[in-house]
């Protein structure tokens, strides 16, 4: 457990020691701020952060793979994976520690946007409904975890960071497209696709509805990909 935390904090700190981390944070905050200033902070309209959450969820699509691509790929490339995997730390702790460290970084990245609801609370009349804001942040966090788990898996599979990024990004894009109504699937497949779809669940969150089945589904999905990442790290030892 201590080792897991050591790995997580090292990972978290290292994002702030490299340009990539700052680029990701500033790009996200710049775009989120733009949305807030241009589309949300409009006088005479009822205040809601719904649009902000929608765009943030969309921004996670490129941002999360950029964060997760380093996790294992960099260690595989530079060889640091060897001292790491020969230290008395289980593979599960390594995978979870890295995942946790990246998750903490994403939280730190989104944290400054709490200023937006604070501003709305202060200047908007009537005040915005806190329900959808809370649910919106929750959905963002869950979505981030799912994306991050996919990214961790991709990173564990290759020593090439670009490949890890593209693999994660394209997989998430494909997943979103296939499980939405955009592609014409045969009826039996469409039914499954709808079950796995993220869109409608996010819409529910945006309305302020926290459906526990949605929470369980998203957490299970993240766990599933994390488990695959763990298997990928284990099999790396055996080949």
């Amino acid at each position: 457990m201590k080792a897991l935390w050591a790995i997580a904090t090292r990972e978290f700190r290292s994002f702030f020691r490299i340009p990539l981390g700052w680029v990701a944070v500033s790009l996200y905050l710049f775009l989120a701020g733009l949305i807030f200033a241009e589309r949300i902070l409009i006088s005479g309209e009822p205040s809601s952060l719904r649009y902000f959450f929608g765009v943030s969820g969309f921004l996670l699509l490129p941002v999360v793979p950029a964060v997760s691509m380093r996790l294992f790929s960099e260690e595989l490339k530079s060889g640091t994976i060897e001292p790491l995997m020969t230290s008395p730390v289980g593979d599960a702790s390594i995978v979870l520690g890295k995942f946790l460290g990246a998750a903490m970084f994403l939280v730190a990245m989104v944290l400054p946007t709490l200023a937006y609801p604070a501003i709305l609370m202060a200047v908007s009349d009537p005040r915005p409904d806190p329900g959808p804001i809370f649910a919106g942040y929750l959905s963002l966090a869950l979505l981030g975890l799912v994306y991050l788990a996919v990214g961790t898996l991709a990173s564990a599979l290759t020593s090439n960071q670009t490949l890890a990024f593209l693999g994660t990004f394209l997989f998430l894009l494909l997943y979103t497209l296939v499980t939405s109504d955009i592609v014409g699937l045969p009826p039996w497949a469409a039914r499954w696709a709808a079950e796995l779809s993220l869109g409608p669940r996010l819409v529910d969150f945006a309305k302020g509805v926290i459906d526990s089945s949605h929470v369980v589904f998203l957490l299970s999905l993240a766990s599933f990909f994390l488990l695959l990442a763990y298997v990928a790290v284990q099999t790396r030892r055996w080949r």
């Binding site: 530079s78 640091t80 008395p88």
Partner: peptide
């Protein structure tokens, strides 16, 4: 693994630390 101190070939370590 706890019994071993290991210096791998080319001594990899985290460049940003």
């Amino acid at each position: 693994r706890r019994q071993v101190g290991y210096l791998p070939e080319s001594a990899p370590s985290y460049a940003e630390m």
